Amino acid sequence: MTDRAEELRGNLEQVQERIEKACQAAGRARDEVTLVAITKTFPVSDVRALADLGITDVGENREQELKVKAPDCPDLTWHFVGQLQSKKSRSVAKYASVVHSVDRPSLVDALSKAAVAEEKSLRCLIQVSLAAYGSADAATGASRGGVEPSDVLALAAAIAGADGLEIGGVMAVAPLGSDAGDAFAGLREVASRLRSEHPGADWISAGMTGDLEAAIQHGATHVRLGRALLGTRTPLG
């Protein structure tokens, strides 16, 4: 095993231990939480190494990286987790199985056309702004993206009625400067309201390296981890 593979193995062991402890503290089974490795800026060799270590779900923030890495590792489940321009929908639909960042009706339309063209079903999560929760000011929170909680059900209906798409649940990032627990508690309420109308929309994508424990405490089914697994990123040019 190479030095890098050993480094990734050690990081993964630490992450898995954190997730296990968080699940125990929350009274949840470990298999209720899926780890999505976010490989933004890291090479496809790292993706292969993580796959060899048992990682099955990988996420990318940028379409440019997704379309390069996904064909090299087609057996993995690829998640797109970044802000998405409608014009990039066809490429994302070609390579990803899940889009975590659906935040507007025009993107629903673009993804629907792309999924139909690719002859596949695309699982869509609604990105929710949590600016209203916690102590962060609204401007700071809004900068992290997402629709207002009051608009989630309308967007979910658009997804559910679109060809080639299925409504999978919600995604969010805790607002900067807020208490992550308060923010994720709010997201859990939004997710509950969504499930009341769309029972199959049971995914809650929340939690990153710094706040995965709070996310799991409040019902996260998918945690998105980059730095804890792969180390400090090289800034994109």
Rank of each mutant, 00 (worst) to 15 (best):
A183Q: 10
K40M: 07
C23N: 08
S129P: 08
Y133W: 13
P71Y: 05
R193S: 12
S150T: 12
R224D: 08
D103I: 00
A158D: 15
A201D: 13
A115T: 06
N11A: 15
E166D: 12
V223K: 01
A114D: 05
G169Q: 11
C23P: 12
N61G: 07
A29E: 15
P105Q: 05
A183M: 03
D57K: 00
G134S: 11
R123P: 02
R9N: 13
A162M: 10
V44M: 01
Q127E: 15
A132F: 09
A157K: 00
P175W: 09
M1R: 10
T56C: 00
L153W: 05
K67Q: 14
V98W: 03
R193G: 09
R104N: 13
L165K: 12
A70T: 06
C124E: 08
A51V: 10
Q24Y: 01
L8G: 09
H198C: 06
Q14N: 13
S86R: 15
R90S: 14
L53G: 14
L155A: 00
Q85D: 04
E13W: 02
V47T: 12
G237Y: 08
D151W: 00
L229Y: 00
G10S: 13
A214Y: 02
P74N: 03
L130H: 03
A157M: 03
C23W: 04
S192T: 15
V68N: 04
E166A: 14
L225P: 02
L176T: 11
L12S: 10
S150C: 07
H198P: 11
D163V: 07
A160V: 06
A174R: 03
K87S: 11
R28T: 11
P199H: 14
A5F: 01
L165T: 05
A5I: 01
D52E: 15
G210N: 12
R28E: 11
A183L: 08
D103K: 01
G181T: 14
K87M: 12
G231Q: 07
L229Q: 09
T34P: 00
E118H: 13
H218R: 13
G134F: 11
Y95A: 06
H100K: 03
F184P: 07
R224S: 04
Y133A: 15
R104I: 13
T232E: 15
R48C: 08
P199N: 11
V92M: 11
V116I: 13
S196Y: 05
V173S: 03
L8T: 04
H218D: 09
S101F: 10
R123E: 14
A228R: 05
D137H: 10
H100F: 08
V58M: 01
P105I: 05
L53K: 10
S178W: 09
A136F: 12
L107C: 11
A37D: 02
E17I: 02
G164D: 05
E17F: 01
A185L: 14
E60I: 01
V81L: 14
M171P: 07
L236Q: 13
P74K: 07
